[in-house]
Computed example of a mutant assay.
Amino acid sequence: MQNRTRKPADAAAAGRPETIPSRSAAKADIGPPGASSTLFVNSVDKAMRVLTVFDDKHSRLSLSQIAALADLDLSAAQRFTFTLTALRYLVKDPFTKTYSLSPRLLDFAFHYLASNDLLNRATPYLRQLSQETEETCNITVLDGTDIVFTLRMVSPHVLTPHVITGSRLPAYCTAPGLAILSRLPENHVRDILENSDLVQHTPHTVVDRRGIAKRLAAFRKQGYSHTEGEYYIGDISTAAAIVDAHGHPVGAVNVAVSRTRWRGAKDEQRIADLVIAAAAAISGQF
């Protein structure tokens, strides 16, 4: 989903709590790959745009709001919302006439999770890693310029409880993302960085492309990546790439620790050894 400039939602006025939204590292206004092909079905693209305008800041939307956010005219928005409501992917409130996402959309998440070989294989290893470290452990995969959390085991000490399965974070400044990038060909990494919005999220974020390339070389050599407060202040993360039988990265496993629980180099080496072992156990079967 591409970032779009959005009008202020009515959530605050309605008294609904606001949470930190998932952020994408992708630059705005980059069209979907293949959009210029004669095989590309524009109506499918438009239907997906309608579904993806809903998020934590836009949980209920009027037809005119959907049209504006999805960049559709009102007539097209009406047709797509009617169809998606008939298919039970949207729910229309009979009183306010606003739309919201239906639980039926969770069917897609269920089918993805149930059919994913990586997650099926990784689950017992991630559970063991969580028990050994008593910290939050994750499996993430690369999607465009982002990492996506596909499996998450949260500890009582979690620093970022709003990060859930399906959340996106930029690959260039997160330990799992950097672990995956460190195992990709240089031209692939270059394309990802060129299409990323290299934002200085904290004073510790590395946004210089040469600096990123230098640390990727170091991470590749040592077999794991490590970041401290580069996206969330106080969050320390150590990750290792999960690779297929050809050595291509298919995801990453990481352990996230709060700064208040961190004991420096001793913890880094201990957790690095654990994530490397977990990634190695999961790898090679795809």
Rank of each mutant, 00 (worst) to 15 (best):
T238R: 04
S24N: 10
T98Q: 14
V154M: 08
L159Q: 07
E135N: 04
A239E: 02
T19M: 06
F108C: 00
S75H: 08
P103F: 10
V158A: 07
L216G: 04
V53N: 04
L84V: 07
S102Y: 13
L178E: 03
P94D: 08
Q2A: 08
T140Q: 05
I271P: 00
A86D: 12
A12D: 09
P170R: 00
T174Y: 00
G264W: 02
A252F: 06
H157Y: 14
T52L: 13
E186F: 11
R261S: 07
P156C: 05
R220I: 08
G166L: 08
A26M: 07
L142E: 07
T140C: 00
G234I: 05
A179M: 03
S37A: 15
R209M: 10
D45E: 12
V91Y: 09
L181H: 06
M48A: 04
A86I: 08
T165N: 11
H188V: 10
L181V: 06
A35K: 10
T260A: 10
S59F: 01
H188L: 05
V199E: 03
H248P: 13
P124K: 03
E194F: 03
Q2H: 10
Q65L: 11
A280Y: 12
A256E: 08
F110H: 09
V41W: 14
D73F: 07
R152K: 14
A35Q: 13
F95C: 08
E134V: 09
E228V: 02
